[in-house]
Nucleic acid binder design. Sequence first.
DNA 1: ACTTGTCCTGTCATGCCGTCAGCTTACCGA
DNA 2: TCGGTAAGCTGACGGCATGACAGGACAAGT
Lengths: 215, 215
Amino acid sequence: MTGQVRTVDGRVAGRRGQATRQKLLDCLSEMLSSSPYRDVKVIDVARKAGTSPATFYQYFPDVEGAVLEIAEQMAAEGAGLTELLEGRSWAGKSGWQTAQELVDGFLEFWRKNDAILRVVDLGAAEGDKRFYKLRMKILNSVNNSLADAITALQDKGRVDKDVNPAAVAGSLVAMLAAVAAHQKGFSSWGVKQAELKPNLALLVHLGVTGKKPTK
Amino acid sequence: MTGQVRTVDGRVAGRRGQATRQKLLDCLSEMLSSSPYRDVKVIDVARKAGTSPATFYQYFPDVEGAVLEIAEQMAAEGAGLTELLEGRSWAGKSGWQTAQELVDGFLEFWRKNDAILRVVDLGAAEGDKRFYKLRMKILNSVNNSLADAITALQDKGRVDKDVNPAAVAGSLVAMLAAVAAHQKGFSSWGVKQAELKPNLALLVHLGVTGKKPTK
DNA sequence: ACTTGTCCTGTCATGCCGTCAGCTTACCGA
DNA sequence: TCGGTAAGCTGACGGCATGACAGGACAAGT
């Protein structure tokens, strides 16, 4: 399905080419972590990778294109977030645990990929469909699972009928993503990591079940 | 308090100068709405304002500096968000109304200033203290009011002692900001504006009081 | 009209962008 | 072993954005 990796001008990339390509991606990724997105220049990435700007343009149309590539790789990993919710129960003590583990996994994933996720977020907010789709891909797994859980509880009569599962799930996921993106911010707000997590889990649990968790 | 408006090289700006300066800010603001942040160039802003790049650099050190200026103006308006919470009650039906009005006001403010807020968000996430402070300034009013409300309920014994008001308030505000930033996204997720608002209000109410609202 | 200080722009050096022709390297079949 | 072919890389170039400066235009007061 993936087809071959190709250069901009249509040649197929061999072993060496793919290595160079990957090195450029790695260096770009590193640069994104260390300097503002607006200031990341092709020439710097190329220098860091020990090659020339022209080489960069052989493999990517522009910086944005390369960023999309990195994000794509990350999104594949991100699909693993589904596991945080698959087959979990939202009832009683296990419900509390489900919420906690979701928060934990989510924050961890975000911290690991914060630089690239910032850019994806920006692209999506600016209305770029490619970034928007990518953001969906990452969040959708969690979002759908949450929405399903709410719908299930609704069918059992444990959650009000006038709750819109998709809206609530989407809002909760957006909250998780936003808090994760500004994790450092919270600490200077006087809120420590360790305190943040249970409170987030509480909000998630409240949102899904409408009730306080039993701990 | 504001002192005089000054050019980069230290001169005080007169009437005409301030007008030009403001025009540049307006044009920059417009450009931010219509093209990606990364692609906004000084020369385009200057052209749009009917002047030259050199003039731009008389008033601002760079694009980022001008963005900070715009954001500062907006932050002043943003302080008005406090009114959404001042003296409001979180009990019974009025509690539900408080939540609704907060959500309404917040989304409205965000939609009106979405372009500049995106950039502020990015800057803050990238760790730039100037943007971070600005973001705080905007969100703090709402955040503090929410935290105070939770603390008050806690003192009355209506909210569990192990809830951290600052963490919950911060998370709720982050949720509002994130949902506001991706409002368009939700609609293509199959969630309409009108449906989104009450569900957001529900989450806010749940977070603050720990209970479902009485409508 | 002259002076003074503000305001704007022409111009220039510098540096990055994005492209191309052309050189080098690796692979493969004869 | 030896071309032949395609992959891989780079120097170089026109073009544009940046940022600095000096000098001209303009408004206001004398």
